[in-house]
């Protein structure tokens, strides 16, 4: 088979067609890129181009088949709605607190009509858009740009505080639904903005919808419908991916049924079962343990584990990737072994 470009490879795997080799991508990777570059995450985002050049340099070095446009800041847009942001020296920005303190009073007052202008007025969101534009300019049509932003369910949990949000779903379901409706619009608006600035693939991440936190019943009642609504609100995107951290094997069939193109599953998911449940209608990407051999093992161990996953996929639609965001300390040589395993998979 002739050598494919990154885009051709991704198009083929998502269409269930044969590929010249297993595609490879990172899930985010921003914290790792900053550390490997020898700078802090804060410095990366503070660069004139929002870190675009550095991100493209490393993803080109690793020959990843897609590039993360706003790596590691998936809940940061909520800063525009009052969630304080704490940026670690090494790790990625994380929300340091909730936006809502009196759920009963504040949720009914959330105003969907001002979401876009509120986002655009936020400095961090502007940085994200700048980075996205910068990457698009550098990458052009060589690779797809993927935008990783929190899914509506996770955004709701961040705005209210996860524990309070869970209790809200039990005690005040109508208010919880109202909050999710609002965050669905926020998530959609961020994705609209990313698309306008060069992003090609919508990639909502839903860590709070993990099978380690909520039951499949609760997932289908709350998180899945919100994700489906989000997908409907983003017709401009050719591809719509999804990520759930931790044990999310039970989610595969549900995601397949709402038309997700690729599901990034974590290491705790049995890959063979996930691929079976995807039925060739949805690609699976993952699911190297980012805190296992990838972080602490030797390159040959990483290669063996990656090769094992490619063999498990056995030609089914599969993209090799870490199961979740990589640790900042992951050795470069280990990450390179992922690409080598893909290249040797021909």
């Amino acid at each position: 088979m002739k050598c494919m470009t990154s885009k051709e490879r991704i198009d083929a795997v998502l269409a269930g067609r044969p590929v010249d080799r297993t595609p490879f991508c990172l899930v985010d990777g921003g914290a790792w890129i900053a550390k490997t570059e020898g700078i802090t995450y804060r410095m990366l985002y503070g660069m004139e181009d929002g870190g675009a050049q550095t991100i493209v340099k490393w993803t080109d070095e690793l020959e990843t088949d897609v590039v993360s446009a706003v790596s590691g800041v998936f809940t940061a847009p909520l800063n525009a709605f009052g969630c304080p942001i704490h940026i670690d020296e090494i790790g990625q920005p994380v929300n340091a607190g909730t936006a809502l303190h009196n759920l009963k009073e504040e949720i009914p007052k959330l105003d969907k009509s001002t979401i876009r202008q509120t986002l655009l007025a936020n400095e961090f969101v502007q940085n994200m858009l700048k980075q996205c534009r910068g990457i698009k300019k550098l990458v052009g049509d060589r690779k797809y740009l993927i935008g990783d932003i929190a899914a509506p369910f996770t955004m709701a949990a961040v705005m209210a505080g996860t524990q309070d949000f869970i209790m809200l779903m039990i005690d005040e379901p109508e208010l919880a639904a109202q909050l999710i409706d609002f965050t669905t619009c926020v998530s959609a608006e961020v994705f609209h903005l990313l698309h306008e600035n060069g992003c090609d693939i919508a990639f909502p991440a839903d860590p709070v919808a993990s099978g380690n936190l909520i039951s499949q019943r609760m997932y289908k009642k709350w998180a899945l419908p919100a994700l489906e609504n989000l997908k409907k609100m983003l017709p401009e995107y050719q591809y719509f991916f999804a990520h759930i951290c931790g044990g999310s094997g039970e989610r595969v069939a549900s995601l397949r049924d709402i038309g997700i193109h690729a599901f990034s599953c974590d290491w705790a998911v049995d890959l063979d079962t996930a691929l079976n449940n995807a039925e060739g209608k949805m690609a699976i990407f993952g699911n190297m343990n980012p805190a296992g051999v990838l972080l602490a093992g030797k390159p040959d161990e990483v290669y063996a584990e990656a090769t094992d996953r490619i063999r498990t996929a056995a030609g089914r639609p599969f993209i090799l990737a870490p199961g979740c965001d990589m640790g900042a300390d992951t050795p470069l040589e280990n990450v390179k072994m992922l690409l080598k395993a893909c290249k040797d998979s021909v």
Binding site: Q163, I166, M167, M169, I170, N212, L213, I214, S215, M218
Partner: peptide, 9 residues
């Protein structure tokens, strides 16, 4: 058999 919400209540 149960998840975080059930534990919380």
């Amino acid at each position: 058999e149960i998840y975080v919400p059930e534990v919380l209540i």
